[in-house]
């Protein structure tokens, strides 16, 4: 009798795990940052500029069970800076980093948190930037870039991030 020892187990999706980490970060941002009263009505809109299916899927999973105060999450894929104007959080994916300036222009006078995913962008206008340090996903935070959009950031979040000016 021959023993059957070969089992083809495919690896689980690493993109999904990375998306989960970023989603947990983004949900944390909503707990440690306060938007002005006029932004506390209607849905809490998170716009993702660019294409990252696992991330949008994961954000939608989070949105189905979590809220920001009484606001329900609304996850939107956006493709141009103009689409970002009504977002509470705009997450610019690394491949779309060149659109940061356009987004900054469209969000003047608004209250939005701009999140980016490319080295150096926290010094170029984004409030929070994802970066990798020692294989780990971390965040750098530019407090003035957050507060210029009339957002209040808790010191707890500031302490947990690498601060950038």
């Amino acid at each position: 009798m021959i023993l059957s020892s070969w089992m083809v187990v495919l690896p689980d999706q690493s993109e999904e795990a990375n998306a989960k980490i970023k989603t947990i970060y983004i949900y944390n941002f909503t707990k440690y940052i306060e938007w002005p009263a006029s932004y506390k009505e209607g849905n809490f809109v998170v716009g993702v500029l660019g294409t990252n299916t696992p991330l949008v899927t994961e954000l939608n999973k989070m949105a189905s069970s979590k809220t920001v105060g009484t606001q329900k999450f609304e996850i939107k894929s956006v493709f141009t800076p103009a689409d970002c104007a009504k977002c509470h959080i705009v997450y610019i994916l690394s491949d779309n980093s060149s659109q940061l300036n356009g987004v900054l222009g469209k969000l003047k006078g608004k209250s939005a948190l701009i999140v980016t995913d490319k080295s150096g962008l926290a010094t170029k206008g984004s409030g929070i930037n994802f970066f990798v340090d020692g294989n780990k996903q971390k965040i750098e935070l530019n407090r003035s870039n957050i507060e210029k959009y009339k957002l209040k950031v808790a010191s707890t979040l500031v302490d947990m991030a690498v601060q950038v000016k």
């Binding site: 690896p11 689980d12 999706q13 690493s14 999904e16 795990a17 989960k20 980490i21 989603t23 947990i24 970060y25 949900y27 944390n28 989070m62 069970s65 979590k66 965040i139 979040l157 947990m160």
Partner: peptide
């Protein structure tokens, strides 16, 4: 991968 995927969205950044 499971360790990450099983994490709750409520996890704070230190725990993450």
């Amino acid at each position: 991968v499971n360790l990450i995927n099983q994490s709750d969205y409520d996890l704070d950044i230190v725990a993450l």
